[in-house]
Every structure is written in structure tokens, then in C-alpha cells.
């Protein structure tokens, strides 16, 4: 059963590379911010899956903190490109 979570984590990482393509080519700055936001969401999912795979449930706490911190960084970058900072 654990193997399935490992395979899923691997596939989610592969999907995240697709978002990395948009991060590299994306013509404008907001496009890149969207790509980073997507990668952050997928990273949280991968952390929780890996926590189950390695039986290290502290990863899930790390994932919660990572989700909140990535939200704050997204907000600040959005404020910056919107010219409100």
C-alpha cells in the first residue's frame, strides 16, 4: 500500500516540472507568480505523501507551515507587482 503513495508522489513531482516550464518561458511576471503558486501547492501535496511513505509524520506539520508561508510570499509578491508596496 505504501508503494502506491510513493508512486503518486513521484508522478506529482513530474507534474510539477510542467509548471516549471511555465515558470521559465512565461512571458510576463504575473504568469511566473502563478507558476510558483502552482508549484507550492504541489509541493505541499508531495510533502504529505512523502510523510506517509517514510512514516515520518512530522512532514505533515512541515507541510502546514510551508502552505502558510508560501501564501504569505505570494501575497507579498502580488502586492509588489501591483505597485502597492
Amino acid at each position: 500500500m505504501i508503494d502506491i503513495f510513493g508512486i503518486t508522489a513521484l508522478l506529482v513531482i513530474l507534474i510539477a516540472f510542467g509548471a516549471l516550464v511555465r515558470l521559465v518561458i512565461g512571458p510576463t511576471v504575473p504568469d511566473r507568480v502563478v507558476a510558483v503558486d502552482t508549484i507550492n501547492t504541489l509541493t505541499v501535496a508531495v510533502m504529505i505523501l512523502l510523510g506517509v511513505v517514510y512514516q515520518q509524520y512530522i512532514f505533515i506539520d512541515v507541510a502546514i507551515v510551508y502552505a502558510l508561508l508560501s501564501f504569505i510570499s505570494t501575497l507579498y509578491v502580488a502586492k509588489y507587482i501591483g505597485g502597492e508596496l
Partner: peptide, 30 residues
């Protein structure tokens, strides 16, 4: 594991919506 995963789920759902709102507004102002 159950409670922490559910907390992470709610954190992700709320922050994703608010973050996308912020990006859309900033993109329009940009």
C-alpha cells in the same frame, strides 16, 4: 495524521483562493 492532514487541507483551500485573488488584482493593476 488525520487531524493534521485535514488542517493542511483547509489551509490550502483558503490560501489558494485568497492568493489567486491577490495575483489577479495585481496583474490587472500591472
Amino acid at each position: 495524521v488525520i487531524t493534521h492532514t485535514i488542517i493542511a487541507m483547509f489551509a490550502l483551500a483558503i490560501t489558494n483562493a485568497a492568493g489567486s485573488h491577490a495575483i489577479a488584482r495585481a496583474a490587472h493593476r500591472n
